[in-house]
Simulated assay, not measured.
Amino acid sequence: MSVSAPASLIRLAALGALLALAGAAPAAARTDRAEGVRVGFASQRVVQGNDANISVLVSPAGVRCALAVRYANGARQKGLAAETATNGRASWQWQVGLGTAVGRARATVSCGRAGKVTRRFMVIGQLIPPRIEVVKKGFSIRAKPYGGTGVSYGLLLQNDSQQFDATKIYVLINFVMADNHALGTVTTSINAIQSGGTYALGGELTFPGAAPIQRLEVVVQVGGHSRPELRLPAPANIHVMPDLYDPAWVGSVEGELLNSQPALVLQNCQLSAVILDEAGNVLGGGTGYAFATLPPATREVIKLTSGFNDIPIEHAASAIVSMQPTWSQAQP
């Protein structure tokens, strides 16, 4: 025997089903809209000065989409035009400037009724190799008592990178006359110049006859770079001394050298100095050597004597000393 439900109950059940479907419809519509824009491709890491890209897939096709990019410091990318999602796709490419803030950035694509989507990417600082700038240069000329001419020269070389030590530095110096002809050339190599640091390069070139030098022509090449790791001893009490036998001329640059590295022993050290006048102009320079072995927290007297006696002592107000040290590990 079969039992039939009353007609009124059947009608109530049907009405309830219709109401349930009606209530679910808006939720389904909202889900469809949220999924109307999705990322097809987006850059994840961009180095300053390079291009970033983002591409989105849009449904329905043909809608207008706008891109907004905001960087870590709050600045917004300029020049991003709206795009039409032709065939359901919209794409942008733009350059992340050298001055753009490093860190996490946000790209948001808005496509009207189709919805919007956001992706984050990282802006990486550009690794700019060190560049060495000649910030000062100068020379002094002296006719030697025994014949010939000496030219004492000095350069202040600055590493403009705050991120890297400059390594394997090659320096060529031409001694040029008024007619633009070079009368002499010297070359030298520097192991390293600290990040943001200045190296005082001095020396002397002698000529068998007169040396009417008008200017120095300097070429600097940097062979490599490294993370800041250069350790230097510290000069102290640096002063200029007259020549013992010819006191009108500079004889030496003297002072002390301190080993302030707690875990390193200074085995020896090449020294270079530049002499300045009262106004800070370069008068010339010279070289020397420190031979003593310095354990941590010790010091030695240094005396540089080569290349200075072409410089009049009258105007030699101060000196800058730079070093190329050789280290070994201190024993525990």
Rank of each mutant, 00 (worst) to 15 (best):
S43M: 02
R45I: 06
R45D: 11
R45Q: 09
R45A: 12
V47E: 11
V47Q: 09
V47Y: 05
Q48N: 11
N50E: 06
D51N: 11
A52L: 05
N53D: 15
N53W: 15
I54K: 03
I54V: 10
I54T: 03
S55A: 08
V56K: 02
S59P: 00
P60R: 04
V63H: 06
A66C: 06
L67Y: 06
L67S: 01
L67A: 04
V69A: 04
V69G: 01
Y71I: 05
Y71D: 08
Y71H: 03
A72R: 08
A72P: 06
G74F: 00
G74Y: 01
A75C: 01
A75Q: 03
R76E: 11
R76S: 09
Q77K: 07
K78G: 12
K78H: 09
G79E: 04
G79Y: 07
E83N: 08
T84H: 07
T84Q: 11
A85L: 05
T86L: 10
T86H: 03
T86R: 07
T86K: 11
N87P: 07
G88E: 06
G88H: 06
G88P: 09
R89Q: 06
A90C: 01
A90E: 07
S91W: 02
W92S: 08
W92M: 10
W92G: 06
Q93A: 13
Q93N: 13
W94L: 04
W94K: 00
W94Y: 04
Q95W: 05
G97F: 07
L98R: 01
L98E: 00
G99S: 07
G99L: 05
G99F: 07
T100Y: 10
T100L: 10
V102L: 04
V102A: 04
G103F: 01
A105M: 12
A105V: 10
A107S: 08
T108R: 14
C111D: 04
C111P: 04
G112E: 13
G112T: 13
G112F: 14
R113W: 13
A114Y: 14
A114K: 11
A114T: 11
A114W: 13
G115N: 06
V117A: 05
T118A: 09
T118K: 02
R119H: 10
R119P: 07
R119T: 14
M122W: 13
M122G: 09
M122E: 15
V123L: 00
V123G: 00
V123W: 00
I124F: 06
I124R: 13
Q126D: 09
I128C: 06
I128E: 08
P129Q: 12
P130E: 05
P130I: 00
I132E: 09
I132A: 10
E133H: 15
E133W: 15
K136M: 14
K136Q: 15
K136D: 15
G138K: 00
G138E: 00
I141F: 15
I141T: 15
A143W: 14
K144Y: 15
K144G: 14
K144A: 15
K144I: 14
P145M: 12
Y146F: 15
G148K: 02
G148A: 08
G148W: 11
T149L: 05
G150N: 12
V151H: 07
S152H: 12
Y153H: 13
Y153S: 10
L156F: 15
Q158W: 11
N159A: 00
N159M: 02
N159H: 03
D160Y: 12
S161P: 01
F164Y: 13
D165A: 07
D165C: 04
A166D: 10
T167N: 05
T167R: 01
T167G: 02
I169N: 08
I169S: 02
Y170R: 01
